[in-house]
């Protein structure tokens, strides 16, 4: 009599012909883990700063990986991660027009104003 044994792996995988070894790779088109951008606060009082990116299945794994990849030498006291697809960026091709409004307003800088030498504490 043939016993039909159905093996389930990791809850949701369903039937597998050859045991665990079957859940393997030959398929090269599996989706990659998503890309995350990593921001690190190097010490209390400073901003989080972009340091690079990495792949991880979810946010918890992204934070753990970020710790291993970007803070092996105490480079951080706090980590932010955000999936790269949620970052929106300005277009460098439009930089000229985008920043144009700031270009001709020298009076926004303190050095624009010529004041007498004897004036102190200003």
């Amino acid at each position: 009599m043939n016993n039909l044994i159905i093996k389930y792996y990791y809850g949701d995988y369903g039937e597998s012909k050859n045991g665990a070894a079957d859940i393997s790779t030959s398929n090269n088109h599996k989706p990659e883990w998503p890309l995350w951008e990593v921001f690190i606060r190097s010490k209390q009082g400073l901003d989080h700063k972009h340091v690079g990116s990495l792949h991880a299945a979810d946010a918890a794994m992204a934070i753990e990986n970020a710790r291993d990849v970007y803070t092996r030498r105490m480079e951080g006291v706090s980590i932010w991660v955000v999936e790269s697809k949620y970052i929106h960026a300005s277009n460098p091709d439009e930089a000229d027009s985008l920043y144009d409004p700031a270009n001709d307003k020298a009076y926004r800088h303190p050095t624009f104003y010529e004041l007498p030498e004897e004036l102190k504490h200003i």
């Binding site: 792996y9 990791y10 809850g11 949701d12 995988y13 665990a20 859940i23 393997s24 790779t25 599996k30 989706p31 883990w33 299945a57 979810d58 794994m61």
Partner: peptide, 14 residues
């Protein structure tokens, strides 16, 4: 491979 897949499946489940 199974680790990559398991982590993906777990993330999806969550």
């Amino acid at each position: 491979a199974w680790v990559r897949e398991a982590a993906t499946a777990y993330a999806e489940k969550k």
